[in-house]
Amino acid sequence: MLTYAMRRLLGLVPVLAVAVVLTFIAIQAIPGDPILIMLSDQSADKALAARLRAEYGLDLPLWQQFLNYIRGVATGDFGKSFRFVGVPVIDVIKDALMISPVLALAATALAVPVGVIVGVFAALRRNSWADTTVILVLIAGISIPNFALSAFLVFIFAVKLGIVPVAGWGTLEQAVLPVTILAVPPAAYIARLSRTYMLEVLQQDYIRTARAKGLSRRLVVYRHALRNTLVPLLTTIGIIFGGLLSAAFVVETIFNIPGLGRMAIQAIFSRDYPVTMAIVLLFTAFYALINLLVDVLYGVIDPRIRLGGGPT
């Protein structure tokens, strides 16, 4: 088991290495001289420009800049912000660091139980009008983009009914709408999968055996079928987290939440590329780690995966 986990952890190295190289190339490829942009109306001041260039290490040959970048990333130093001159990137983003992951975790914690309950509910009433309605709602839940859903929900619950605040961050009321909106697509996705898995599991021989030996329908569903439905769901957590991190950009922007997603978007528009790239790197690393955790956990539950080399 440990060797499997180690092998997966080593597999992470090339992915992160490429991400580091790509972000470095991206900063280089962006048109315009960051120092001149930083100086704006003082760009004629050659001495100041030279000093800043030295401070940012931009006067070094490219290969040396690259080595510094790698060394920095490895030690958690992402360089200095272009927008806040002289301020290290890590200081710019440190207050925002935990907000996106917390939002994603809260949304997952809401989405998984709701999704499973709805999915099982629909599966047990296969082809009834309730099942059909649920399927339609699920397709809508997966289809409607989070910002379109936000428009409806903010209008109804914040503007018309005034139950929750329109935007902001810090209180529990302010978190209700963002977390709900983040949770809708994964909940719909989980519900759809658990409905499918449940229908498959209910056709298995061991379910018929359990029913034949006289167990109640309720016991069979919750003791035998549900457990076997939950295991394959675990693999979807990785996909769900990828979606949630992406959704954080949108939802944080809409609700004015000072997380990394909103910060990355602001950094793009203020041409603060070191900040943008640091956030891209952090999200990628976080996403890779979640996927790794899920795979290892799945290996613990289902030994076939370890031997096969990874879930398909």
Partner: peptide
């Protein structure tokens, strides 16, 4: 393709957008 899959979709798009404008 593994490398591209390693990025969450939208984040890769944002990386490209930052470079291309």
């Amino acid at each position: 393709s593994d490398i591209i899959f390693a990025f969450p979709e939208l984040i890769f798009a944002i990386l490209v957008a930052a470079v291309m404008g």
